[in-house]
Simulated assay, not measured.
Amino acid sequence: MGRVTERRRTIRVRDGAVSVRPDTLVSEEPMEIRLNGRPLAITMRTPGDDFALAAGFLVSEGVLGAAEDIRSIVYCAGAEPNPSLEAPGGGANTYNVVDVQLAPGVPVPDITLERNVYTTSSCGLCGKASLDAVRTATRFPIGGASSLAPPLRVEPALLARLPGRLREAQRVFDRTGGLHAAALFSEDGDMLDIREDVGRHNAVDKLVGRALREGMLPLSRMILLVSGRASFELAQKAVMAGIPVLAAVSAPSSLAVDLALETGLTLVGFLRGPDMNVYAGEERIALPSWV
């Protein structure tokens, strides 16, 4: 199985002085996700938590909604022949191919070429059709009052503390400087889980997949914080997991804001200390009156 980090030779130039030394880099390898034995998607990721990554991806695709929807998740053989690593299927087990078998009775989506292309490229869907699709496909709507619990309200001061806690917990980033991070926080500001990956969407999928397998979905009173920007794809993954608040230390995209407004997601960007921009769902943020 691939390592999280690798060492590579590098030439360092510092204040005019030149030296040769090894540098620690984050590992990046492709992972193919198969569904009931059929190829569905390929993503570039940092090895580790691969089963959670596959499960979280399938939550965002609307295939999974509970741990009971999964019969098994296994590594399986790739296409490379290697007698010393022989695995079922005739190829080498590179630990870069994961097959998710659905439980009996769970609907299998139509895996078309079009679907495979857009998931492989990690570009997501675009435009009004995708907004409609996410709003109607999620099993865990966040815009309505479907719970007897009091409405979620988050103090700005609590949000302000989260980026620092996220940064302190980024252990692999400290060694490589090359990873995105995503973390789940409770409404009281407790960090429940953090994942790092070369792809910010993979980090979120790993969080959601671990939550699915532990029977925690929907994440209806959680805050999702990401270390970079908030793209449409990340907003989509939050909505599909029932997460009501998505915060990012950088900017959201216009389509992410559109999706947040369509689905009732609270979207916060440029979260840096006490400063932040609230783009949608301001009713969940205990803001002082600006009138």
Rank of each mutant, 00 (worst) to 15 (best):
A251V: 07
R165Q: 15
E155L: 03
S254C: 02
W290L: 15
S19F: 14
N82G: 14
K206F: 04
I70F: 06
T5D: 08
Y75L: 13
G228F: 11
V13I: 15
P81Y: 11
P104D: 14
G89P: 02
A241I: 10
V278Y: 02
E114R: 11
D275S: 12
S27M: 12
G228D: 11
A280N: 07
R9C: 04
G281D: 07
R71W: 02
R210A: 15
A181M: 06
L85H: 09
L64H: 01
E283M: 02
C126Y: 07
L166F: 08
L158W: 11
M1I: 04
T43F: 13
L148K: 11
D188F: 10
A160D: 05
G65K: 14
M1N: 02
M240P: 06
F51C: 03
V226W: 01
L271C: 12
G273E: 05
V18R: 00
G89F: 04
E262N: 09
G209H: 09
E155D: 15
L102Y: 08
P151F: 08
L148E: 13
R165P: 00
G89M: 06
L271M: 11
V278F: 04
P47V: 05
L234N: 14
L85T: 02
E187A: 15
R213Q: 10
A181G: 15
M216Y: 02
V134R: 02
L85I: 01
L192H: 03
A41W: 05
D197H: 08
G143H: 10
S220Y: 05
L159A: 09
S121A: 10
V26S: 10
D174S: 05
F232Q: 07
L131P: 02
V204K: 04
R165M: 14
G177A: 10
R221G: 13
M191A: 11
L40I: 02
A181W: 13
I194Y: 02
A55D: 01
E214L: 13
T46A: 01
D69E: 05
G91K: 13
M276G: 01
V257N: 01
D174Q: 10
R229D: 13
G242I: 06
G209R: 09
R200E: 15
N93H: 06
V20T: 04
L265C: 09
F140W: 13
L224F: 03
L287H: 11
N96M: 09
P104F: 09
L113T: 06
A41T: 13
P156E: 03
A129H: 11
L192Q: 12
S122M: 10
V226R: 03
I111M: 03
I70C: 05
P218L: 06
R9H: 12
A182Y: 05
A251Q: 14
N116F: 04
E32W: 01
E61D: 10
P151W: 06
E196T: 04
V59T: 06
S231H: 07
L35H: 07
D197R: 06
L207N: 11
P218A: 09
T176M: 08
R171F: 14
P83D: 08
L35D: 08
A149P: 00
C123F: 12
A129E: 11
V74C: 00
E29W: 01
D258P: 00
V154T: 05
T119K: 12
A241T: 03
P30I: 12
G48L: 05
G177M: 09
V20E: 12
R175K: 14
I285E: 03
A256R: 01
A41V: 13
V268L: 08
R14Y: 07
E196K: 07
A251H: 13
